[in-house]
Design a protein around this nucleic acid. Structure first.
Lengths: 227, 227
DNA sequence: TTCAAAGTATGGTCTGACCATAGTATGGTC
DNA sequence: GACCATACTATGGTCAGACCATACTTTGAA
């Protein structure tokens, strides 16, 4: 058992303070200097602890003065997830195929476990924007919104955050794929089909439509269909 | 657009160095002092960058001398994911129900997309250990191994890492649930059924068995069955 | 009343020092 | 020559203090 480092103690104590005081998103933590004095540690240890918490999307730091300054509690799990995926793709301890399979899993689950139908409105609005999109980049931007709407259907914030991170990670790849295809009519038809099947509450059909769509969008990756 | 902070530049440069030099797990980064001089920044900025990378499970720092000392590239996405889940559960921006639904999703996907049958051996070994377990804690430990084996079936490292993180997050809750139940016969029967259906390559049946099992394990949470 | 300037609390960064850790080199002892 | 205790040293871990950048707050003059 290794001796915990000072900044790890600080993390634990901040975490504890959050739990004990019932702090929630928007609440402020004491300043770095004050925390250092309260916990009897150096300011650098406090800073490293805050850096970790910031990386994990729990706090957000802001210089200056006033109500918005200092370390404020937030909830940004998706940025942490996106960083995680990007870095592990970089070190080849994760492959694009694994990321896309995960995406398929989430979307199939979401259309079969609709718990927040307001995702449908987002999907609908995104579809209309996609029809109007002039270039691949703009098309993909609204495509991302559409699929985020799909994830939102689940009503599960963990899945929504993961979907955001996944799309952010493969964004450049998606744009390149659309540009290489040179056409969006097949993809648009896929999207409309998904939307309509979800609207009709045909979870099984929508799951199949999602699988078909990802097969079209990433033809080079063999996406296994559900049995 | 905010000005990037120094340590963020350092992260980007380290990331770039990893990509350019084709560094992979086990390779070493230069020391903190050397990196600081090379990048013309203070050592504290280098340290904050390394702290972030360590949080994300990409590097691991070790004091002392020799081949294992310094910042070494690793691949621990699960610890980052576990920290992420724990902290966001703490700030109530995530609920236990969402975590468990995600777990159900992964296990159902894995048993329906078996790509690495060696997970079966792990499941089998874990089952035998569970039979011999004397207390709830030991039972849950091998239960975790069993379900990790399930995730491994998918052959998707992202799903395996997520499962590890999920189980770590709900570990205390699982132990309490088993202790409260006071019996493990129902759970054992569930596990054997899952194992046998997977071994028989009955993905659909196994998915149903997984849903039934989670319903037994977490009776207080309404786990929606697949349609 | 308005607005520009000074004040100030906050994070961001650097420097230099010292401690803790754990291989490595040295040299004595058998 | 083999072995082991000691000193050495490169590495991360921590602290203190200084200074800069930022952005709100206060002050005071027009």
């Amino acid at each position: 058992m290794r001796k915990p480092r000072t900044f790890e103690d600080v993390i634990a104590k901040i975490e504890r303070r959050i739990a004990d005081d019932g702090l929630t998103v928007g609440d402020r933590l004491p300043g770095e200097r004050q925390l250092a004095e309260e916990l009897q540690v150096g300011r650098s240890s406090v800073r490293e602890a805050l850096r970790v918490l910031e990386t994990l999307g729990v706090v957000s730091s802001q210089a200056g003065r006033g109500p918005d300054a200092g370390a404020v509690l937030t909830s940004r799990p998706e940025s942490a997830l996106a960083d995680l995926l990007r870095l592990h793709l970089g070190t080849a301890s994760l492959s694009l195929g694994e990321v896309i399979a995960t995406r398929l899993m989430i979307e199939q689950w979401a259309v079969q476990h609709v718990d927040a139908p307001e995702g449908l409105e987002i999907m609908r609005a995104a579809l209309e924007e996609m029809e109007r999109a002039g270039d691949a980049r703009s098309f993909v931007d609204h495509d991302v919104t559409f699929h985020l709407g799909v994830a939102l259907l689940s009503g599960n914030r963990l899945l929504s955050a993961t979907m955001r991170a996944l799309r952010q990670t493969i964004h450049a790849y998606s744009v390149a794929a659309v540009e290489a295809a040179g056409r969006t009519d097949v993809l648009m038809a896929d999207h409309w089909r998904i939307y309509e099947l979800v609207a009709a509450r045909d979870g099984h059909g929508a799951a199949q439509a999602v699988a078909d769509h990802l097969g079209h969008a990433y033809p080079s990756l063999s996406v296994p269909p559900a049995p």
